[in-house]
Simulated assay, not measured.
Amino acid sequence: MMRRPMQAPPMNGPRFNEWIQSPKVRVIDHEGENLGVMYTREAMEQAKELGLDLVEVSPNADPPVAKFLDVGKFKYEAQKKANLARKSQKTQEI
């Protein structure tokens, strides 16, 4: 029996759920409480129980920091913030 290839990882935005590559992550829950370091699979199960996703917010930390968030809402808010920054930047003409 052949397995189907996994979907391509998300190209833009943070890694989330099964695309997190680290075996352990430091977890922050949806209320901002630090739950400590735990295995990624265990953290994904807890996030799924809450109806949220496990989103890697700081991949360069040791261990990486992940939060229980809604990925769609997180991406939307990041896009709005980027649009506002682009709108308010000043350009100089030479």
Rank of each mutant, 00 (worst) to 15 (best):
I94K: 13
P14V: 01
P23L: 04
E45I: 07
E33M: 14
K73S: 14
L54M: 05
A61K: 15
Q89I: 07
I20A: 02
A66P: 07
G51W: 04
V25R: 01
A61L: 10
K48Y: 10
N34R: 09
P10D: 05
A8L: 03
K73G: 09
E18D: 05
E93G: 10
K90Y: 02
E49S: 07
M1E: 13
K48I: 05
Y76K: 13
H30Q: 04
T40A: 09
A85T: 14
G36S: 09
K24P: 15
G32R: 09
R41S: 09
P64M: 01
V37M: 02
F74R: 03
G32M: 05
Q92V: 14
A66D: 01
R15C: 08
E33T: 12
L54D: 00
Q92E: 14
I20R: 03
A43K: 00
G72C: 05
R15G: 05
N83T: 11
D62A: 11
R4S: 15
V57W: 00
L54R: 06
V37Q: 02
K73Y: 13
M11W: 15
D53L: 02
H30I: 06
I28Q: 08
K87E: 15
A85H: 12
A78Y: 07
G51S: 08
D29L: 01
D62L: 08
L69F: 11
H30E: 04
G72A: 03
S88D: 03
K24S: 15
V65E: 01
N60V: 09
K24N: 15
F74Y: 13
Q92R: 15
K87A: 15
Q89D: 07
P63D: 02
G36L: 04
K48H: 07
Y39Q: 08
R86M: 10
R3G: 12
E93A: 12
I20T: 04
F16L: 08
T40G: 08
F74Q: 07
P9R: 12
P59L: 06
N17A: 04
A8R: 14
P59R: 03
D70A: 09
G36E: 13
M44P: 02
E33I: 12
K67M: 14
R15E: 08
D29W: 04
T40I: 06
M6G: 14
V55P: 01
R86Y: 08
S22A: 11
M2P: 11
A82E: 10
N12V: 12
R4Q: 09
F16H: 07
L52F: 04
F68M: 00
M6F: 13
N83W: 10
A43P: 01
E42F: 13
Q21P: 15
V37E: 09
L52G: 05
R26L: 10
E93C: 07
E31A: 10
D62W: 06
S88E: 11
R86H: 14
S22Q: 08
A85F: 09
P59H: 05
K67Y: 11
R86N: 11
M38E: 03
Q89M: 06
E49I: 06
F68Q: 01
E42W: 12
V25D: 00
V65Y: 03
V55D: 00
V37N: 00
V25S: 11
L35I: 00
